[in-house]
Write a protein that binds this DNA or RNA. Structure first.
Lengths: 331, 331
DNA sequence: GTGAAAGCGCTAACAT
DNA sequence: ATGTTAGCGCTTTCAC
């Protein structure tokens, strides 16, 4: 900027005014400064600006997700970026792989970069470590998983209700022995889905005592093996509710391997790519990651714009999409 | 930092030393400073540090992709993050949607934030606008698409060779009338794939004059309609090479709609999720987005570490994965 | 309409 | 082993 000022033959403050579109600069000076800036290929340093500025905003957001490589995170990320970019805000993203240590490291990395807000899929047991930052006024939105011990905005899918809807769907086709394939129980959304499943069975008057509820499945392979073991057991289920993406895919593979994909009903939680092209198509309770991302970003910006209301939980509805696998009656 | 110094009863430089792990601070002082920093929940400001530091590194990378929501970009992004995080470097990502205007805006946004390097899937006609920045020493790596008019590192898939392999595969099953379904011809990778396809036909002595080569398809729907029109024409092809992800999916839908998915052979470029669970499974030439991302990040860091060698093009091999759809003979 | 000086949070270079 | 001063690139404040 000093160089631009020198080249244009004006004071440094005048360059600042032109770059920031402030008033009180004559048209000729503006043109001279513009020309000088262009010829030097000048890009103003946003960090230096941020250092001195009254509001201290870095025009930067931090996003913490399971993995930037997974489609759910990607869709959320995209929705956040779309809103952020209209405000000239850039988005940092970091993958946690369900590792609480990585969460703390990543949060700290973002705070050192003075992000204006943080959107996170938390994986820690407790989020108390974020309290000082919250008090400092950094907007914080939890997505996909609810925090413990922190009052903040939260955006989640309707996990229990979605799971209940899936269960009701299977019940309506006459199934009574429905297996539940679940993720690790320390994951909060996994608990909610299990709760929704069991409560719906309760409402329907199905004794849950001999219902196979398997948890702790965290990848395709584990789900695949668990389902196969179940189907080869004494009392195999007539239907399966797979409560997560990868579990659903593992379950589909399991059913294929045993040639039971047209016999055993399956409903999954969370949509799966190309699910409609399989035979049968996979019936799922779809989440809406774009809407979750959009809402989260909206909350961040509302807070930055001065909203001081108490933290709220926003529940994004899920949608049952029937494609065939969930509409088979018990043999 | 001033506050920490005051609380610990030491000079500000001593705090700086402790925070940065510099030597020549006594154990007791270190402990006092640490305690003060913790109690104030102090996070050093990386931007302020960057402003003064000799190397002027922001520990930040900019990534420009088609969309952070698509799986190819996601996998690349993840690989880049994995390497970057080992160096404490955070990654900004931005989606371009094949819009050159967005490219310039996004690049400028990242330069203003003084990223240490830029990894980009360029969509502009010419990348000359990046020359000043290159000369300034900012490492630049082009991924997935080769630039024009800029000498820099480039990491791409083996587009022509992959397309040739797919074509050879179909030829080996006796197909002679193979349709080509291609993306917009202004996209460089699309051109390469078409070239590989046609050259392989040439090598096999197949007259390309009456081979249906359709380009300008950019989404599922367009591909779907184009293929259906082709199959209902006078001389339908016996096999199809779909040269991109979405085109492949559109083509599969088209074949299904006409009930020809077990009759017309299909090989796609770029892998498709769950392709192995379809019936028949979709044979593809798979790219390796993780490896592309890893290599790109590696090049950036090599440059930052002082590598001054001339820009090179790195070609990441593709892999033919046979799953059924490509192994059908002509009726 | 314009510019000079001070200061944002930190580190480099030099004291002590 | 520790502290002081200047200055990174910008904005704020205030003077012209």
């Amino acid at each position: 900027m000093k160089n631009v000022a020198a080249l244009a033959g004006v004071g440094i403050k005048t360059v600042s005014r032109v770059i920031n579109g402030e008033p009180n600069v004559s048209a000729v000076t503006t043109a001279r400064v513009r020309a000088a800036a262009d010829s030097l290929d000048f890009h103003p340093d946003l960090h230096a600006r941020n250092l001195r500025r009254a509001d201290g905003r870095s025009s930067t957001l931090g996003l913490l997700v399971g993995s930037v490589g997974n489609p759910f995170s990607g869709a959320m990320h995209r929705a956040i970026e779309d809103l952020a970019s209209t405000r000239g805000v850039a988005v940092f993203a970091s993958s946690l792989d369900d590792d609480p240590d990585r969460e703390e490291v990543a949060v700290s990395a973002f705070l050192r970069r003075r992000v204006d807000g943080l959107i996170l899929t938390t994986v820690s047991k407790s989020q108390g470590y974020l309290l000082p930052e919250l008090r400092r006024g950094t907007p914080l939105v939890f997505v996909d998983r609810e925090p413990a011990g922190v009052e903040a905005d939260v955006v989640v899918s309707d996990n229990a209700a979605g799971a209940a809807a899936a269960t009701r769907h299977l019940l309506s086709f006459g199934h009574r022995r429905i297996a539940f394939l679940g993720d690790r129980t320390d994951i909060q959304t996994a608990q909610e889905r299990r709760r929704g499943f069991l409560e719906e069975l309760g409402r329907a008057g199905v004794a849950t005592a001999d219902i196979p509820v398997i948890t702790g499945l965290h990848d395709e392979d584990a789900a695949n093996r668990a389902l196969i073991a179940l189907l080869e057991s004494e009392h195999p289920p007539t239907a399966v509710f797979s409560s997560q993406n990868l579990i659903t895919i593992g379950a589909v593979r399991g059913l294929r391997e045993l040639g039971l994909h047209r016999t055993i009903a399956l409903v999954g939680f969370d949509d799966v790519p190309l699910a409609d092209l399989l035979e049968p198509g996979i019936t799922v309770v779809a989440q809406n990651p774009s809407e979750i991302g959009r809402l989260a970003a909206e909350r961040i910006f509302a807070r930055l714009d001065g909203d001081r209301s108490a933290g709220r939980t926003y529940v994004v509805p899920t949608e049952l999409i029937t494609r065939g696998s969930g509409e088979m009656r018990p043999k």
